[in-house]
C-alpha cells in the first residue's frame, strides 16, 4: 500500500544525518521536521532568516514578529540564530545548507525539477525555490508519485517551467525511493506492499531496477491510506 504524506516525511527524516542544516519546502517537506529522530541534532533553515526553527507556536503563544517562510508563527530551538535575507541566501546559494527537501510538479530522469509555476493565466511567483534548488548540497524531492488525476510526476522531460536543471539527487514518493544517477533513475526502495510493476506503471520514464529492491521500513500507521497529491 502507498505511504501517507506522513509516511513519506518519516522516511526522509530517517536519511537526514546528525548535524544537518535543512531547508524544508511547503507541503509534505514541512512534515519532515516532526519525524527527526530524537538522538539527532538537525537545524531547520527558513529563508526569511532563521537557522534552528522550532515547531509552531501554541495558540496564544505566537510572537507577532516570528514566522517561518510558510508564514506560520513558529518557535526557536535553543541555539537558533536570526539574520536578514542577504545572509539567509548566502547560506542557500553559497552551498552551506546540507539538504533541501522540496515539493515537485515534475522531476525528470536527469533530476531536472519543475515546482514553481503551472502555465496559464496565473500570477507567477517563484520565492526561494530556484536559489534553494541550485544551492543546497543535496536536493531531495518529496512528492506523491502521480497527480490527483493519476498523471506521472516522474517523467522523461519536464513540460512545466523548470526551477533548475539537474539539481535533484533523490526522490521520495508514496510508492518508492529513487536515486538520480547521471542520466537515469535507480529504484532504491519500495513502499510496503508496492510492487516494481506498479512503480513502473506510474512512472513515465525508464527506471533502472536492481535485483531484490528492498521494502522500506516505516511504521504500519504510515502505510495503507490512499493519498491525495498536495
Amino acid at each position: 500500500m502507498p505511504l501517507t504524506r506522513e509516511g513519506i516525511a518519516f522516511r526522509i527524516a530517517r536519511d537526514l544525518p546528525d548535524g544537518s542544516f535543512v531547508n524544508l519546502g511547503v507541503g509534505i517537506p514541512t512534515l519532515v521536521a516532526r519525524f527527526v529522530p530524537p538522538d539527532r541534532t538537525i537545524l531547520i533553515h527558513s529563508e526569511n532568516g532563521i537557522l534552528g526553527a522550532g515547531p509552531k507556536a501554541a495558540p496564544g503563544e505566537e510572537d507577532p514578529d516570528l514566522v517561518n517562510a510558510n508564514g506560520d508563527y513558529v518557535t526557536l530551538m535553543p541555539g537558533a540564530s536570526l539574520f536578514d535575507h542577504a545572509l539567509s541566501f548566502t547560506m542557500i546559494r553559497g552551498g552551506h545548507l546540507t539538504h533541501a527537501v522540496l515539493g515537485a510538479l515534475q522531476v525528470s530522469r536527469r533530476g531536472d525539477l519543475a515546482n514553481w509555476r503551472i502555465p496559464g493565466p496565473r500570477v507567477p511567483g517563484v520565492g526561494g525555490a530556484m536559489d534553494i534548488a541550485v544551492g543546497a548540497q543535496q536536493v531531495w524531492v518529496a512528492t506523491t508519485h502521480t497527480t490527483d488525476q493519476g498523471e506521472p510526476k516522474i517523467v522523461e522531460e519536464c513540460t512545466y517551467p523548470l526551477t533548475a536543471a539537474r539539481c535533484v539527487r533523490r526522490i521520495y514518493t508514496d510508492l518508492a525511493v529513487l536515486r538520480v544517477e547521471g542520466e537515469h533513475l535507480v529504484l532504491e526502495e519500495l513502499a510496503p506492499g508496492v510492487t516494481v510493476e506498479e512503480v513502473l506503471q506510474r512512472t513515465s520514464t525508464r527506471l533502472t531496477v536492481p535485483d531484490g529492491v528492498p521494502t522500506m521500513e516505516v511504521p504500519a500507521e504510515f502505510a495503507g491510506i490512499p493519498l491525495l497529491a498536495s
Binding site: F89, R93, V123, G125, G128
Partner: peptide, 23 residues
C-alpha cells in the same frame, strides 16, 4: 488585489528569485 490587476493587465510584474531580489 495583485492577482485581479495582473489578470486584467493593469499592473506590470517583474518576478525574481528571492535570493536574486535581495542581492
Amino acid at each position: 488585489a495583485v492577482r485581479e490587476r495582473y489578470l486584467r493587465e493593469e499592473i506590470e510584474l517583474e518576478v525574481l528569485p528571492q535570493g536574486t531580489f535581495v542581492e
